[in-house]
């Protein structure tokens, strides 16, 4: 593992809301080119972990490293000092709380558990807006069309991206009029438009039927190859997870209970007890 470059590293991250510890001392690594899954029962803190990584929440304690750089760091202060129940207290002394847009600008893009497309806009516009972040124009030059070259280039790129993800035939339709599976695909395309190194997918197969899940599995494999990116995903569909993951992390009650390659996870006693159960899933 060490020969590969580290893209994302979460170090001793604890997220505590009042007295509730949602994520407890999470350590997680994602290397370049990998597909890593984060699984666990409902309420285990998977989405919270995502929100910590993407800057929606500042962790109570701990660090997040991206591309060899510490991007998020925090330690318990004020009232939280007394309340803090996690480990590694006092190890971190700096505060770095970038907003989500700053983190996205570093090269990390995400999708959401419940689809969050811009409802009043077309498929094309949804992807085009994600290009806004990489603009070089200011408001004046954009208003008076001083940026028409950049604008044209952006539109061209969006066309190509939509072609790649297979949405170019519906590009002028309203985003919300698409079938569910395509909306998911669009959300991924929108995230890709920000040129991320790391793509975070929060339950991309939620609410999909087996056929759509199968398509999604191949789609994720395809974008990894084409865009040469690293993927971290949360998922409940075990077929999908076992199929595409290089490594898996398992969370339960905020704590990491296991990590490893899919085969290891499938045979891990604790994971079976906590999450997988003794159904067909563990056998395939």
């Amino acid at each position: 593992m060490s020969e590969k470059k580290n893209v994302l590293r979460v170090e001793n991250a604890t997220m505590q809301f009042g007295g509730v510890v949602a994520v407890d001392n999470l350590n997680l690594e994602v290397n370049e080119g990998e597909i890593v899954s984060l699984i666990g029962p409902n309420g285990a803190g998977k989405t919270t972990a995502f929100n910590v990584i993407t800057g929606v929440y500042a962790p109570t304690n701990g660090q997040v490293w991206f591309d060899g750089e510490c991007i998020v760091e925090n330690y318990p202060q004020g009232k939280m000092k007394k309340l803090y129940k996690g480990q590694h207290a006092g190890e971190y002394t700096h505060v770095k709380e970038p907003t989500p847009d700053e983190i996205t600008a570093l090269g990390m893009a995400r999708t959401f558990q419940n689809i969050r497309l811009w409802k009043s806009m077309t498929v094309f516009e949804n992807v085009l807006i994600a290009k806004h972040m990489r603009r070089t124009s200011n408001m004046f030059s954009a208003t008076f069309r001083g940026n028409h070259k950049e604008e044209a280039a952006q539109r061209q790129e969006v066309e190509e991206l939509l072609e790649l993800v297979g949405l170019s035939d519906v590009k002028d339709e309203l985003a919300t009029s698409l079938p569910y599976g395509k909306q998911r695909r669009l959300e991924i395309a929108r995230a890709l438009a920000t040129h991320p190194k790391l793509l975070l997918l929060d339950e991309p197969a939620a609410g999909m039927n087996p056929q759509e899940t199968l398509e999604l599995t191949s789609f994720i494999g395809q974008i990894r190859k084409q865009f040469d990116i690293t993927i971290l995903l949360i998922e409940h569909h075990m077929d999908l997870v076992m199929d595409i993951s290089d490594r898996i992390y398992v969370l339960d009650f905020g704590k990491l209970i296991a990590s490893g390659v899919p085969a290891e996870i499938q045979n891990n006693e604790r994971v079976i007890d906590a999450y997988l159960g003794v159904t067909d899933d563990a056998e395939d």
Binding site: P100, D101, F112, I129, H132, R134, R190
Partner: peptide, 9 residues
């Protein structure tokens, strides 16, 4: 939320 996640300050 989506706007912020897509890099809009």
């Amino acid at each position: 939320v989506a706007a912020e996640a897509m890099g809009i300050n």
